[in-house]
């Protein structure tokens, strides 16, 4: 009941859900000092869409997806998440972060908490869910990522692949509408990449809206609805993976693909 009251601030008037895109980015520019990291980026992510973002190192991929949940600020342009305009106002940021889950390259699990506590803490503090319900929900998602029997261990006792799956379960426990992944497999040993990608593929199959920064082109081919190629703060080319991989139009995209596909 309390939840509903809190949310009504941002949820009214109720919009027809299908009509509003999950994320709408218009003319987004960001500077670090005098260095422009994003240059008038336009990007719309439809509900249920799976987006893969790729591009050379330093091209602004992380910066772009981190602006979506306000981990990075921006100077120009507009970001609208689920119909909510992202400003610097606490209510706007809170409402957006409620809808957006994030998975990091370095997992960023909380080392002083157990796996289960990692997944329940925000549920209890942010959503006001009771301890018992939070644990039930967390165990459900830990089961989904196939970590149910490690719930009482600490993160440092798990393998890298397991830690990243816990991080996914932690984000999912908050029941977001959109999931952001910033190179989720880049810090993993090769044999653990697959288990994390499998989990993400499964999630995609369930209809989650996903924006994934990755160089795993196999995953992009199989799962993505659209591939976005960035270079030097701009979106240079985008299209369905079949087209992008077989017939990239831009020179920079070709050079990049020839490099990562050998």
């Amino acid at each position: 009941m309390i939840r509903k009251n809190n949310l009504s601030l941002v949820e009214s008037p109720p919009e027809p859900r299908g009509a509003v895109p999950a994320v709408k980015i218009r003319n987004l520019s960001k500077w670090y000092g005098s260095f422009q990291a994003l240059k008038a980026v336009d990007l719309t992510i439809a509900r249920g869409e799976k987006l893969v973002i790729c591009g050379p190192s330093g091209s602004g991929k992380s910066t772009l997806i981190r602006t979506i949940n306000a981990l990075e600020g921006f100077q120009e342009g507009q970001i609208v998440v689920d119909g909510i305009e992202l400003t610097r106002k606490p209510e706007a940021v809170e409402a957006v972060r409620k809808r957006v889950g994030m998975v990091f390259q370095q997992f960023n699990l909380f080392p002083h908490l157990t796996v289960l506590e990692n997944c329940t803490l925000a549920l209890r503090l942010v959503r006001g869910v009771s301890q018992k319900d939070a644990e039930e929900r967390a165990l459900h998602y830990l089961g989904k990522v196939r970590i149910p029997d490690q719930a009482h261990k600490y993160a440092s006792q798990l393998s890298g692949g397991q830690q990243q799956r816990v991080a996914i379960a932690r984000a999912l426990s908050m029941q977001p509408d959109i999931m952001l992944f910033d190179e989720p497999t880049s810090a993993l040993d090769p044999e653990m990449v697959k288990e994390v990608l499998d989990t993400m593929t499964q999630l995609a199959g369930e209809g989650m809206t996903m924006a994934v920064v990755t160089h795993e082109m196999g995953f992009a081919r199989q799962v993505a609805d659209r591939v976005v190629f960035m270079d030097r703060g701009e979106i240079v080319e985008q299209g369905p993976p079949s087209e992008f991989f077989s017939n990239p139009k831009e020179l920079r995209a070709r050079a990049f693909l020839s490099q990562i596909l050998h």
Partner: peptide
């Protein structure tokens, strides 16, 4: 590490 702040913020913690 910064990542701890970011993970916490991304989860919506005050």
């Amino acid at each position: 590490p910064r990542g701890q702040w970011e993970a916490s913020r991304a989860l919506g913690l005050k």
